[in-house]
Amino acid sequence: MIEFKNVSKEYEQGLALNNLNLNIDEGELFVLVGPSGSGKTTLLKMINGLNTPTTGEIRIADEDIKNSNIRQLRHNIGYVLQAGALFPNMTVEQNVSIQLDLLGWNETRKHDRICELMVRVGLDPETFLSRMPSELSGGEAQRVGIVRALAGQPNVVLMDEPFSALDPISRAQLQELVFELHREIKTTFVFVTHDMQEALKLADRLAVLYQGELQQVGKPQDILSHPANQFVKDFFDNDTSVEIFLQQVIDAGFGVQQTDETAIPMGDDQTIFDWSREIHDRPNQLIVVDQIILQPEDLVNYMATLRVGVIR
């Protein structure tokens, strides 16, 4: 269990974190979410000592990390950074071996573990281990970043906006991968993002931060159904309303390709909310998006496929 007790962080420019109390349970996938400048990354980096609180304490497994050997502590914490942050002068194999070398694993054990994880994240070890980071795509680099973080079987895995630089398809694939990996290895994951959809999709529980203050902690459905304050409510409303495009409905397999003179043309960049306003005014209206006809029932059926608060 990771505990933050009365944690504050003060910079010259002002307060980055204000008297924050938070518990992250063993084995959960915990997401810290909030707009930029909310203090979520500061909080994450306090767990492995990259940042230290001005006042307050952080306890891992009931031990104040101030009293533990910081390098020892870091050896048992996995870390995934933005865009992989692989060392460009080392091969993939050297990159993913860093923590295993520090932990003193022998060559055979190291190689077996790396190959196993490479296969698990969908990269063929024979093809990829000898490559340099410059020869990888963004998605591949971040998969290697995940292997590097998980290799040493850490007690905690920290992820700092790992997918923010990726294209939407790679991002969705990697979100899926992280979700599954967490289910398999049941280690504590702490994941930072500013993307509300990503937070809702991944989190067992999430914490909403705003201007250094903790706004609300809870399961995704609790936060969506009972937002603690106006900020949380607006943040989620905003986020859901702008981001579901009609193209996503079609991608999910709805609609048929035919022609119908009565259908109103809509763009694939319009949202399901534009669509629902259309249906609200004319309940039986068909719409056509790039030659695909969508019926009013399709909206209901599409919505039914979505988990509460989880939008794919």
Partner: peptide, 9 residues
């Protein structure tokens, strides 16, 4: 990259 090196101890 420096942060990554530090973070792995």
């Amino acid at each position: 990259l420096i942060e990554a090196a530090d973070a792995f101890g």
